[in-house]
């Protein structure tokens, strides 16, 4: 699975980096930095949690 950010929606709340640190970090403004878009199978549930926690509905988990 791949994690993608919809940059037009993201408000930089800075949550996602905490919930999915393997793939995302947040910069000093709170906007995500995609370290690695490929989510490892063992992390998919973390990714799902990050997607549903994003207050701006800006994260997407998609099949490659």
């Amino acid at each position: 699975m791949r994690i993608e950010v919809d940059w037009t929606r993201c408000d930089g709340h800075g949550l996602c980096g905490l919930l999915l640190p393997e793939n995302l970090a947040n910069d000093t403004d709170g906007f995500p930095v995609v370290r690695d878009p490929e989510v490892a199978p063992g992390n998919v549930h973390h990714a799902r949690r990050a997607v549903s926690a994003c207050p701006a509905l800006a994260l997407r988990l998609s099949r490659p």
Binding site: W7, T8, C10, D29, F31
Partner: peptide, 8 residues
Amino acid sequence: GQCGPCLF
């Protein structure tokens, strides 16, 4: 101005 990283 739609995307934060681009705008800022």
